[in-house]
């Protein structure tokens, strides 16, 4: 009896440690917007049983149509446990719900949100391995690399400058996915020029003085806010650089579709040369 139980424990431990080597999971639940979209793109038919409710929000999700086919969850430990998953995909900020799932013995794979196109490849590989779909993931990564190589342009010292411009003047820095995509498209970041290592608020006056060649804004929210009024300030129209809207959903998560943002910006950089 004792040895049998030990054997079972061993088998369980082996299963947890190396899910890729074992049987692929059959009931996968994703509770994070970014893993939702990678799982939808990579999973075998029927393998994925639920995605987070955010996957249906067109403001942040680039795969709303695909997500309509799945029941959604709100990332609560209880509802996820009741779905009887044999694998849960979560982001790295799952919080108490993920801790609870760990305690309940549900296998959870935590995927850190990629902050660059290079890390996006790792996330695709990680989700692919967790789903037992490494081949699909490798094909996706190969496509991804090809597209990046085709669209990327070198950002020399005379590179055009770009700044993202959001509510209250929030502008992203080079340590984010959007910042990396802007750089790969051949832009120098205004936040870099200002010596900002992380994203933050840039006063309107400072943005105007920096005279960016391109100002990138996102999707406005419904309803009004004073915080977003600064996006329509007449001073921006007086600048020579123009304003481009890139839908937020394209680079909220690192996805194959993020390369659409790279393509838009790459074309802008080409036109500015």
């Amino acid at each position: 009896m004792v040895s049998l139980r030990a054997l079972a424990v061993l088998a369980l431990a082996a299963g947890l440690a190396a899910p890729a080597g074992a049987e692929p999971p059959k009931r996968v639940v994703s509770m994070n917007l970014c893993t939702d979209q990678l799982a939808m793109a990579l999973a075998a038919p029927g393998q994925l049983v639920s995605v987070s409710y955010l996957a249906l929000d067109p403001r942040s999700s680039a795969m709303v149509e695909e997500a309509m086919a799945y029941p959604t969850n709100r990332g609560r430990a209880e509802e996820i446990y009741l779905l009887k998953p044999d694998l849960v995909l979560a982001g790295s900020f799952g919080g108490p719900a993920v801790a609870m799932l760990h305690r309940l013995g549900v296998p959870v794979v935590e995927v850190a949100p990629p902050t660059s196109l290079a890390e996006a490849r790792d996330a695709i590989a990680q989700v692919g391995a967790a789903l037992g779909r490494s081949e699909t993931a490798e094909a996706m990564i190969a496509d991804f690399d090809r597209e990046v190589a085709r669209l990327a342009r070198p950002a020399g010292p005379d590179a055009p400058t770009a700044a993202t411009w959001g509510a209250n003047g929030y502008s992203i820095a080079g340590d984010t996915l959007a910042g990396d995509i802007l750089r790969r498209a051949g832009f120098a970041l205004v936040t870099d020029r200002l010596g900002m290592e992380t994203s933050g608020y840039v006063p309107l006056e400072v943005l105007v003085m920096a005279q960016p060649d391109l100002i990138v804004t996102g999707s406005p929210y419904p309803g009004a806010s004073r915080a977003e009024e600064v996006l329509d300030h007449p001073a921006l129209e007086r600048l020579e650089g123009h304003v481009l809207r890139v839908p937020d959903a394209l680079w909220t998560c690192a996805l194959p579709r993020s390369l659409e943002a790279l393509a838009m910006l790459s074309a802008e950089a080409e036109a500015l040369r």
Binding site: A167, N168, G169, L204, Y221, P222, G223, A224, S225, R226, A227, E228, E229, V230, H233, P234, A235
Partner: peptide, 25 residues
């Protein structure tokens, strides 16, 4: 209650007042 998540940040503006980034408009 606004669908705009930034609207809640505006509470400070409406209760304390500010002239930042105003325009001729």
């Amino acid at each position: 209650l606004s669908p705009n998540p930034f609207a809640a940040y505006d509470i400070m503006f409406w209760t304390m007042g500010s002239l930042a980034d105003r325009s001729w408009g």
